[in-house]
Simulated assay, not measured.
Amino acid sequence: MEVEVNPKIKQVRPGKIISIVIAVLFIVVIGGNAFTSVEYGHVGLYKTFGKLNDNMLSPGIHFKIPFIQTVIQVNTQVTKAETDTSASSKDLQPVSTHVAVNYSVNKDSAYNLMNNIGGNFDGVIINPAIQEIVKEVTAKYPAEDLITRRDLVAGEISELLTKRLGKYDLVVNDINIVNFKFSDAFNQSIEAKQVAQQQALKAENDLRRVEIEAKQKIAQAQAEAESLRLKKQEVTPELVQLKQIEVQEKALEKWNGVLPSVTGGATPFVDIQSLTQK
């Protein structure tokens, strides 16, 4: 059975089909390049024939002229820059400092930053500024103070860096001195000093303990002497006589009424009369 073909379809030429396909592809390509999206935490800037436009784009989908405009995205989230710096302390000790700086781009000034500095602003502005300021600050402090007063040193670096980067619309959020590295000789001297301080502290504690124990013994002796003195004040002739009577009474209670026939010495005298007259 022969299928009849629509005459209109027979009239369509192959060249026309190719033209239609090309037109559809062109529309798809144009449509795909007519829109762009700005990621969250970024702002966008139009770039037309190499010229940057100060019209800032917020996160989302935006229209652009295909093949003529591009959109540059600027990260406005907090970013970390880490730098190693070699310098000398005030007492000429070599010191290597590892610094981590958290910074962000002021989104309202993203155009000025990109137009004047460019996308490589971290290598052009941030790292050199950190290097210079860390060297400047560490040169003000002796090596030991860099260790013991780290918060003060970090605060001074942060203050100077904030002023420097503020000129380029960069915001310093936080700065951390990750590590100070000194020479082996200096590390050994610090260790020896700490050992000496610990020994001195131990000796001081031992001396305090001995002093406290001595004071305790003196206080105990004074208390015993005072107790003995008070006891002596309590001893009166009447008390002595009373004690003698108590002793004689106890002896009389134990006596069976018979005097010993043989004695090896003087017979203890018991004043029976005084007992019977009570």
Rank of each mutant, 00 (worst) to 15 (best):
V5L: 12
K10N: 13
Q11E: 12
Q11I: 01
S19C: 10
V28C: 03
V29C: 02
I30T: 06
G32S: 14
N33A: 12
G41F: 10
G41W: 09
L45V: 06
K47D: 12
T48I: 15
K51A: 15
L52R: 08
N53V: 11
S58Y: 12
F63K: 13
I68W: 13
T70W: 01
N75M: 09
T76N: 03
T76R: 01
A81F: 11
T83V: 14
D91V: 13
L92S: 13
V95I: 08
S96I: 15
T97M: 11
S104H: 06
K107Y: 02
S109C: 04
S109V: 00
A110H: 09
M114Y: 15
I126Q: 06
I126G: 05
I126F: 03
I130A: 01
I130L: 02
Q131V: 00
K135A: 00
K135S: 02
E136G: 02
V137I: 14
V137R: 03
E144K: 14
D145Q: 06
V153H: 02
A154F: 00
G155C: 00
G155P: 03
I157Q: 01
L160C: 02
L161I: 04
R164S: 00
L165Y: 00
G166W: 00
K167Y: 02
Y168S: 04
F180Q: 02
F182E: 05
K193R: 11
Q194Y: 11
V195L: 14
A200S: 08
V210F: 09
A214Q: 14
K217G: 11
I218S: 08
A219H: 05
Q222G: 04
S227Q: 15
Q241H: 11
Q244K: 14
E246F: 14
E246S: 11
V247L: 10
A251E: 15
E253P: 15
N256V: 12
T263S: 13
G265D: 10
A266E: 13
P268V: 07
V270K: 11
Q273E: 12
S274Q: 12
T276A: 03
K278C: 06
